[in-house]
């Protein structure tokens, strides 16, 4: 294949994949009142407006909270699980693996509905708590999978050596294993953060008055107002994701973990 053909195919594909974002960025920079492309004059007023919308601030804070603490909790229980599945010859390891991975397989909207009907309502759980638990469950499979693959690449005899040299197993884990799977944990955190932050279907049924994640809030804002501020917000979020991924890629070659 000639170079020209290669770049033609890649150019078309990437335009299709990335082009829409460039359009959103410009649509958000419109000086006009309604969403359009090309924009009616350039202005940053919609980008500025995003920061003044009270509900965006509240839902951004909630989404941040869920993404950070949901992912941390998932790592807190996911790392020991990944370690156990990798280092202990557990009977039924496959079953445990399947159980923990299950939230990925089931469509999000079903997860949200099931939790609302058979967890939130009967146990009288608050909506924030319900969202926290849901996001943790949805992120857990990624935490276990990514940390597992890091552990796979780390030879078990290192910890065994540490144990022979007098460490307890816990000390060996903290001193030998953790520093070596740091990259994997960070990758799992970023993947979990992004998954949780962008999650919509499961959160759809779990949103209440005043308690909404940012994507759900954007959807309801769009239903009420059709100005370019959602485009501006979309563009800002895209920048945030790009920045996170870029930094992660620089630091640890993130894409090999995805």
């Amino acid at each position: 294949m000639s170079r020209l053909t290669i770049w033609l195919i890649l150019g078309t594909t990437l335009t299709f994949l990335i082009g829409p974002f460039l359009i959103v960025i410009f649509a958000g920079a419109s000086a006009g009142e309604a969403l359009s492309f090309p924009p009616q004059g350039l202005s940053l007023k919609w980008y500025a407006k995003v920061f003044t919308v009270e509900s965006f601030r509240a839902s951004f804070a909630l989404s941040m909270f869920l993404a950070i603490f949901g992912t941390l909790t998932a790592l807190l229980i996911g790392i020991p699980a990944a370690y156990a599945l990798n280092r202990y010859n557990l009977p039924g390891a496959e079953a445990i693996r399947t159980i923990v991975a299950a939230p990925i397989i089931v469509p999000g909207i079903i997860v949200g509905l099931a939790l609302l009907r058979y967890f939130v309502v009967p146990l009288d759980v608050t909506i924030t708590m319900a969202l926290f638990v849901t996001h943790t469950a949805l992120v857990l499979p990624y935490a276990v999978r990514v940390v597992s693959s890091s552990l796979n690449n780390l030879r078990a005899d290192m910890e065994e050596a540490a144990v022979i040299l007098g460490c307890t197993r816990f000390q060996a884990f903290v001193k030998v294993v953790l520093p070596n799977i740091r990259g994997g944990i960070l990758a799992a955190f970023i993947l979990g953060f992004v998954t949780s932050f962008n999650e919509v279907p499961a959160s759809l049924f779990l949103s209440g008055p005043g308690v909404r994640t940012l994507p759900i809030d954007m959807l309801s804002y769009m239903e009420i107002t059709f100005d370019p501020s959602v485009a501006a917000l979309s563009a800002l979020l895209a920048f945030m994701s790009v920045a996170i991924v870029f930094v992660a890629e620089r630091l640890l070659g993130f894409s090999r973990y995805v």
Partner: peptide, 12 residues
């Protein structure tokens, strides 16, 4: 389903 949805469609 909602009048807000219609307002959006008509403004678009």
């Amino acid at each position: 389903s909602r009048s807000s949805e219609l307002a959006q469609l008509m403004n678009q």
